[in-house]
Amino acid sequence: MVAVTIGIVRLRNLFAVVMLGGIYSFLMATILYVLDAVDVSMTEAAVGAGISTVLLLATLAVTKVREAAPIHPPALPLAVALVTGAALIYASVDMPPFGDPLGPGHQHVAPEYIARVLPETHIPNAVTSVLASYRGYDTLGETTVIFTAGIGVLALLVGRRRPRRSDGASGGGNA
């Protein structure tokens, strides 16, 4: 995964970068599966490796495939990134250890949800029931976001002066 990320940073052929992005998404989906997040893993595999790759390739088909060589020296962005990384690593020392069932995140509402999901919603999958029942309005808002994004993509791409291959107009159907 680290190697794929470095490849994404270094390579300038954008086709290769998009392909590496697909590999990266599948690796991420595998990691999420190992972390017991099966729903998120399936979504990441379908959306990250599938739809994102298709959208990126469709964009590359109507734009340029080669990335220009950078003209600015990379020192300043590298310094910004490394300082941010160092600050985050310093902060991570205070986080609870990985996989600890006594971590503060596992003490408040999570056991409550897990205990109440089956009696209240009759859906055994806790993720589904929280998403669709307890937090249904969030999901409604999310579909609103998708709808707005679809309208935005259509507004940007329909009625172009030089009509070429249409791209991304399927953005509204991504959910």
Partner: peptide, 23 residues
């Protein structure tokens, strides 16, 4: 299960922003 729910939403919103950005 709660982070899973949040991240499901985040993934879908992420692809929406990606689509607008690419457009």
């Amino acid at each position: 299960p709660l982070p899973h729910v949040l991240i499901l939403t985040a993934i879908v919103v992420g692809v929406a922003t990606l689509a607008v950005g690419l457009a």
